[in-house]
């Protein structure tokens, strides 16, 4: 008598887990993966998804079984068994989620720490968000910049120094880590490239930073994801990842030339 419902619930759970897995696999969820950071983020994503499918399947199976099996006939006025609780079961459904939570915390923290690393040999790019466009500024390679300082963007006036090459599109060499330093002119903006799985707000008066290590050449959208006024929806740009040689060629060309519009 006790094994009957358990086996049925497990069967329903397996069925639901299969259905949820199908949704996870056959729906094109994540966009292309174009950075090392994206690889780690996606690992966390699928790790959490797997746990969620498990929880969903169990909870949904118990619900479906209970709702179908225990619905009452219209003329039945009786009460259910007066079960007030079960300490053992209550401990189980407190401890098991706790263990899963700790597992997700560990995996997330490790991925976060790795994605936040600043490699010694990184390219420096400074980003100014303004209504309603991005400016990407490239200081000369090897230039010494103090901590919390910007080489290209004046924090007071938010003007961009002439010695820096600027571009409306983000240009990156493939395979090398780039550290983006972001600030904003008047209101908060947010830099987002779905293919890199990276997002960071640009805040007036502050400098924020992220590390991007592109792994695939291509042309990706840069989207503003913090409501910044009337032109928010149109505040878009491109992240163009090229070979190191091509990037160097572009970088040595004067600002505004050499095809900021073509990849």
């Amino acid at each position: 008598m006790r094994a009957g419902p358990l086996i049925r619930v497990i069967l329903v759970a397996l069925l639901l887990a299969a259905a949820a897995t199908a949704v996870a696999i056959f729906v094109p969820w994540l966009p292309d993966q174009a950075s090392e950071e994206a690889g780690r983020t996606d690992f966390v994503f699928w790790f959490v998804t797997a746990i969620c499918i498990g929880i969903f399947a169990i909870v949904a199976a118990i619900s479906v079984y209970s709702f179908v099996k225990f619905r009452v006939r219209p003329d039945d006025d009786s009460d259910g068994p007066p079960v007030h609780g079960h300490t053992g079961i209550e401990i189980v459904w407190t401890v098991v989620p706790l263990i899963l939570v700790v597992a997700m915390l560990v995996v997330s923290s490790v991925a976060l720490a790795r994605n936040d690393r600043v490699p010694a040999d990184h390219l420096r790019v400074e980003v100014l968000g303004q209504q309603f466009a991005w400016v990407f500024a490239y200081p000369e390679e090897g230039m010494e910049v103090g901590k919390h300082k910007l080489a290209c963007i004046d924090r007071e006036t938010r003007l961009i120094a002439d010695r820096c090459k600027t571009s409306p599109n983000l240009r990156l060499p493939v395979g090398r880590s780039t550290r983006l330093y972001l600030t904003a002119r008047e209101v908060i903006h947010s830099f987002f490239v779905p293919e890199f799985r990276l997002k960071q707000d640009a805040v007036p008066g502050m400098t924020t930073a992220i590390t991007i290590t592109p792994t695939k050449r291509g042309d990706y959208p840069v989207i503003c994801t913090e409501l910044c006024g009337l032109g928010h929806a149109l505040m878009r740009s491109r992240a163009i990842v090229t070979s190191a040689a091509e990037f160097e060629r572009w970088r040595r060309s004067p600002s505004g030339e050499n095809g900021d519009t073509s990849p």
Binding site: R40, T41, F45, V48, S108, N115, R197, L198, K199
Partner: peptide, 14 residues
């Protein structure tokens, strides 16, 4: 959970 795990929420927020 996808909005609580930091690496994922960096992608999904906003």
């Amino acid at each position: 959970i996808f909005l609580g795990a930091v690496p994922i929420v960096i992608h999904t927020s906003d």
